[in-house]
């Protein structure tokens, strides 16, 4: 027997699959956004509003990976977006292989923007590259402004942070500025949007960013 030194991450094979998927999506002109958050952060409500606002400009699809998301998928389809539910078989995250299977089963013809609703969890999903073009983290006001301190990796891996439920700011001790500072400290390039999908407050900036990123993805 000989010893082979590797010094390789255990997820190295996933990283390669993810990169291949990302390149294929680029050739298709589909921007895949990996949405990560805790359960109950308002992902589906944010997506519903976003789809409603953008459906005339972009063809949108949603891959639901949350285990209890049958209701969510129905809500999304009622808005006219393509949707599919993926079972992770008890796993705490989506990896590139599962994402590919889900996308292939759903079909991506003419889709400009696809969202992957990752499993509600702020830890494991950050460790696995799904092949998405952009990673977005959602944090809701009731969860607290200290989350960047507790889950630093999630903030470091995200291109954008959407702070949801800002209509509830008056009821919680959530310091928006403090949260911004903490997130930017971990990741100086992170784009931060503070929104309320209920009142529509701040939604335009978030949607403008999505439109800009989708056309940039196609142009590259």
């Amino acid at each position: 027997m000989k010893v082979i030194e590797l010094h390789k991450s255990v997820t190295a094979s996933n990283d390669a699959d993810a990169e291949a998927l990302r390149q294929e999506l680029k050739q298709r002109g589909t921007l895949l956004i990996n949405l990560m958050s805790s359960p109950g952060s308002g992902k589906t409500t944010l997506l519903s509003r976003t789809i409603q606002d953008l459906k005339d400009e972009l063809k949108i699809a949603v891959l639901e990976a949350d285990i209890e998301s049958a209701v969510d998928a129905e809500r999304i389809e009622a808005l006219g977006a393509r949707s599919i539910q993926v079972h992770t078989d008890g796993m705490c995250h989506m990896d590139a292989g599962m994402t590919r299977q889900g996308l292939e089963a759903m079909g991506l013809e003419q889709i400009d923007l696809a969202f992957l609703e990752n499993v509600g969890n702020l830890i494991c999903p950050a460790e696995y590259d799904t092949g998405a073009g952009k990673n977005v983290m959602i944090l809701s006001v009731p969860e607290g402004d200290d989350k960047p301190l507790k889950y630093p990796l999630m903030f470091q891996k995200s291109d954008a942070l959407v702070i949801t439920k800002i209509d509830a700011l008056g009821y919680f001790d959530f310091d928006l500025e403090q949260c911004r500072k903490r997130a930017l400290k971990l990741n100086p390039n992170i784009q931060i949007f503070a929104v309320s999908a209920k009142t529509g407050d701040g939604m335009k900036k978030w949607e403008d960013w999505l439109k800009k990123e989708t056309s940039a993805w196609k142009a590259q």
Partner: peptide, 21 residues
């Protein structure tokens, strides 16, 4: 201070394998 961050200790790396060709 609470202004701290993790430098190492969250990784999982394959260091080496013993193999027969």
């Amino acid at each position: 201070s609470g202004e701290t961050y993790l430098v190492m200790g969250n990784q999982c790396i394959i260091k080496e394998i013993e193999a027969e060709e």
